[in-house]
Every structure is written in structure tokens, then in C-alpha cells.
Design a protein around this nucleic acid. Structure first.
Lengths: 325, 325
DNA sequence: TTGAAAGCGCTACCAT
DNA sequence: ATGGTAGCGCTTTCAA
């Protein structure tokens, strides 16, 4: 490996000078500068990032902690984050927490040991107090934590209302809801939005909501039970697209027609919704933009630049596809 | 931040001794050891990984370079790799190459600067020579590169034959093929396997193969064109599941019945295949196992342990679901 | 069994 | 405009 000393020697200057041209700071004569640059190129020299990190206490890498990259929502977010990070010269560490608080905590410790500069946290299990004590810049995506931690999310309640209302407008009469885990904010908000729209309907009762825990398998089962038990159901507002896709599958397996017998609308706007037949109508969050913004905010935080807003809520968008009439 | 010196001071020993107990090597008296450990716990001290890296020239992190985490095959692999890595105390760097040779190359340079210990490369654009010059332990997944680089893959030709033959056995008469990109080994091998089985059939001609480039959109278009142009087609062997899912969608959009009018079989065994209706019959690779093995091999390589095999080919498995009769 | 000190490769301060 | 050098936090000789 060639080091800064080798370059200094070859260019007949001190390491200090080489460091100066490397970092573009401090005075250095144009000629020496040129000479050093030439040698650097000749040797194809690249400064050692670890040595640099040790001194500067930062690593130009940030971590993305999420429950499970296998859940189709997260790769889309991860892609956005990576793209944005790259633009600013940062590198991405991927951490699956498996929703386990312990693993999440351990990860944070390891990250600190590695001088990781900051963390983007999606759907964490850490309490706000824990987060604030983290000793690491953090931005949260997709979970509304009540604290001073910068947060990026979308209008869940509004989106849920919009989706449910849309179903009504389309003439569906009895709208069921597939909800996510009970301990997750987005899930509760979406449920709330649904309630806001339907709670006063004559046909409404609590049995119309079933828990699908944001995953396919449970959603398929839940949907079948729901429809079997309450055959009057003719529409489903699903708390996320994954469950929505599960509902589509369940309904098809039961031999019913979509969107005529049953209309379905999801939430998230992941590409999975476009991969199935019929394509899933959904309340879309701007996932990519959210990821990019989170990355940008984190970088600002890291570089001690001011944040205009510490809390950003994106509007949602109704994408009408084929699972609604 | 508390450092090794703080611990040394508090425990009234030298940093050398602390280092010894930290790393469990060299002689240290049981009592001093206990004392040091106690102080470490008291201070909740964690050694600085960067300083360690600088000295040892390794970082306990490995990188996974893949084309695009958004493609549903890769998250499953990434999950496996991460799980395995964690077991051995390694951490995962995620790098999307976007199939761009330049980005891939830049990444490798950055990784070297960071003392990343090794790389798992999926579907790279680097030539074997480049790889060998990399100066970094590498294992390749899913691409058969002819070199001495350790490789993990599955039996693509055999799998393709098996899948195509299966379609014949089920009584399908005219079998088309949706193939992947022409410059990718797995894609060519799967094509070859298809040819091996059908090339001598009276109905066979080259027009029955269409390029879907391993992605959904193109596969939908390609499938529709194929079926429109050659209405006698009654089965499709798809080079991967993503295209298979695309084919299912295309066929349904055309109003044909699966599996009666048209049978479809995919390749890969990703969970996406189970999310659609009807569920996709497929030639499954053991993706998780492949990821785990790749990680293990890489770690052995890094730790200079002997590798029993430098080339590992997994058997495939036919999973019969609902897109074939 | 323990400690002193060199050194990993770099940055930044203080001189000159 | 340039150089010398301390120091980032750790590991590992070498001596004691």
C-alpha cells in the first residue's frame, strides 16, 4: 500500500504539504501542488480512509436500520437512501433489526464504535428517550416519534381517509379494514383514518377490522375469514400494499371478482402493486423522495448545517388502478 | 468518549494490559484481569473499532455489491448474507452498482480505502482479470466466472432443462422462452437448458424465444407479443421469476386462463412467486443457503482458512404451484 | 506477568 | 508557502 509518506518522499515535500493538497486547504504553491498531484496520479494513491476517520472521528458512512430488507417496502427506501448518500460521498451500512430491540441496540453500539456518522431509522423499537441518548445523529422515517428527533413521514391519517372515502364514492357499501400491528404508529393512524370515515355508517361495526400485521400470509388468512364471516363486505381498505396484495390473492382464491364483487385499495405505493393482476389501487407515499429527504436531512445534521424543518410530512397520492371499479 | 487509557488509569495498569484482556491474548493475572474487566463494565467501555482497524488493516465489515436492491431477488440474498455475517461479527456494507461498471469500480476503490475485508459480488460487470487484481477477497454469487475466484451458484442448465421438460410432461405442446439479458451467464445457461430440451421438437423455432431482460415491464410486453404472434404457444418457461410473474400478468390481461390455456414456470424461487394469484410454479434455487454459504466462504478467505471447494453448485428444486396444470 | 513505546496513516497546529 | 510533529485509540513487540 502506498501511503502519504511515499507520496511526500517522491514529491520531495513533507507529508503536511501532501495532506494540504489532498484536502485542498492551507497554502500550497501552484507548482508544488502540481508536482504532488502528478505523483499521486503516478502512484495511483488513495488516502487511507480509516486513518482519516481515526483522526476526524467520522467515517463518511451512515447506517440504515430497518426491520427486514425482505419486506418489499424497504428496498425501495434503501435504494433512495443509497442514491442520495452516494451523491454526497457517503457509504451505506445495512442493518436488519428483525424488529428485535436487542439487536437494534447492539447495532447502535457497533455503529458508534465504527464512527458511523449517523443513522436512518425505520420502524424502530427504541423509545424516544433512548434515541435522544443515542449520541448519534438520527433521522426517523415512517414512524412518528414524539420527540425532537427529525422525522420524515407521510400523511397517514389523511391518506387513510382519502382511501376509504374513495371506496365509498365508488359505490362500495361495506368497507372492511386490514390493519397493521397494534404497536406501530402508522398502522394506528391508518386505522384511525378509516374509522374517521366509516364509524358513523349504519353498517359499521368493529368486526370489520382484522389484523394482518403488515404481512402477506396473515393478510390472506384474515381476508378470507373476514369475507366468510361477513359476506356483505364489498370493499377492503388495506393498511399497506403487502396486505393489499394478500387480500387480492385471497379474494381470487375464493373465486370472487375484483373489482366488481370486491374492491381493494392499499397503502404505500410499492412496485409490487403493479406486478400483480389486477394492479392494485393504492394510496401512494413518495417513497423515493422520502428516502432522499431523510438522507439529506441526516447529512445536514452530521455536517452541522441548519435544518429548516425537523419534521416533514409528505402528501400522499391516490393511484387508481384496477382493484377498484 | 472513554478510551483504553482511561480504563488503564482507573484500573491502575498499563494500556498494554488492558489491551491484553480486551483481546484475550498474552499473559495477564487473574486478579488484574478481573479488575480491568470490572472497570470496563463500570465505564461501559467499548474499544474504538476504527483505531483497531487502522492497526490491523481490517474492519470486520464486508460489502455486498449487487445491481439493484429493488429487484426482489436481491433482498432475499442480502438478508441471508447479513444473517450469516452477523453470526461471525461482521457488518454489511450495501452497494448498488446499477449494473454500471464505473460505479462498481469506484465502489471497490472506496471499499479498499475503508479496509473493507472482502466483497460478495452478485452479477458484476467486472472481467475476471479485473477481479483477480482487485486486491480484496471476493466471492461471486450467481455468475459463473471462469477464473479462480470462489463462486456460489446453482445448476442453471439442469434447472432449465428440468423446468422445460416438466412443461412437456404436463402435456403442454408449444413452449416459449422468456430469456434474460444476453450478456449474463445465468441467462444464457437457462436459455441453453431450454434449447437442450426443445431444439429437436417439430414445433420449435427461434421465434419462440423473446428477451425480457430479467425484468417485469419488458417481460409483460414480450409475453404479449409472443402470444399474439404465435397463438399456438401454450406454455412459457421464464428465465427468472420476475419475468414469470410478468408473464402471468400479461396472460391474464389477455384474458387467457392459467394454467389451462397457458402454463408458466419461472426460475429462482423468490417469495414474489407466492404473492400472486395463481402462485407461480418455479425452479427454485436455495437463495438463502447460497447467501449464507457465500458469506461463510468469504469469511474463511478473509481469515485465511482453507476452502474445501472454491466452486459450489447448488441443486435446484422444482416447486409445483398453480401456474401449471 | 507487566509496562514502555513504536507505529498503523492521516490531520492540524505551531514554527519558520 | 512549507516542514516538523503531536496525537487520533489501539495492538504488539521488546524489556524488565
Amino acid at each position: 500500500m502506498t501511503t502519504i509518506r511515499d507520496i511526500a518522499k517522491a514529491a520531495e515535500v513533507s507529508v503536511a504539504t501532501v495532506s494540504r493538497v489532498l484536502n485542498n486547504n492551507g497554502y500550497v504553491h501552484v507548482d508544488t501542488r502540481a508536482r504532488v498531484l502528478k505523483i499521486i496520479k503516478e502512484f495511483n494513491y488513495r488516502p487511507n480512509a480509516v486513518a482519516r476517520s481515526l483522526y476526524k472521528k467520522q467515517s463518511n458512512t451512515i447506517a440504515l436500520i430497518l426491520p427486514d430488507i425482505t419486506n418489499p417496502f424497504f428496498p425501495e427506501l434503501a435504494k433512495a437512501v443509497e442514491d442520495a448518500l452516494n451523491l454526497y460521498g457517503y457509504t451505506l451500512m445495512l442493518c436488519n433489526s428483525d424488529e428485535r430491540p436487542l439487536k437494534e441496540r447492539e447495532y447502535v453500539e457497533i455503529l458508534k464504535q465504527k464512527y458511523v456518522d449517523g443513522v436512518i431509522l425505520v420502524s424502530h423499537t427504541l423509545a424516544p428517550e433512548d434515541l435522544e441518548r443515542l449520541g448519534l445523529p438520527v433521522v426517523i422515517v415512517d414512524r412518528n416519534v414524539h420527540g425532537k428527533i427529525p422525522t420524515v413521514l407521510s400523511n397517514n391519517i389523511g391518506g387513510a381517509r382519502r382511501g376509504t372515502r374513495f371506496l365509498k364514492e365508488k359505490g362500495y357499501k361495506v368497507i372492511a379494514h386490514l390493519r397493521g400491528p397494534e404497536n406501530i404508529v402508522t398502522s394506528n393512524e391508518r386505522y384511525q383514518g378509516y374509522l374517521d370515515v366509516v364509524a358513523d355508517e349504519s353498517w359499521f361495526h368493529e368486526g370489520l377490522t382484522a389484523v394482518g400485521n403488515y404481512n402477506m400470509k396473515e393478510s390472506v388468512t384474515a381476508t378470507k375469514e373476514l369475507i366468510t364471516k361477513y359476506p356483505e363486505i364489498d370493499a377492503i381498505f388495506s393498511g399497506n400494499d403487502v396486505m393489499g396484495v394478500g387480500a387480492v390473492k385471497a379474494v381470487q382464491e375464493m373465486g370472487k371478482q375484483i373489482p366488481d364483487d370486491i374492491g381493494i385499495i392499499g397503502f404505500d405505493g410499492i412496485t409490487l402493486g403493479e406486478m400483480i393482476y389486477p394492479e392494485l389501487t393504492t394510496i401512494a407515499q413518495p417513497i423515493y423522495e422520502m428516502g432522499v429527504l431523510a438522507a439529506r436531512m441526516l447529512i445536514k445534521l452530521i455536517e452541522n448545517k441548519p435544518l429548516n424543518t425537523t419534521f416533514y410530512e409528505f402528501p400522499i397520492k391516490l393511484i387508481e388502478r384496477k382493484t377498484t371499479r
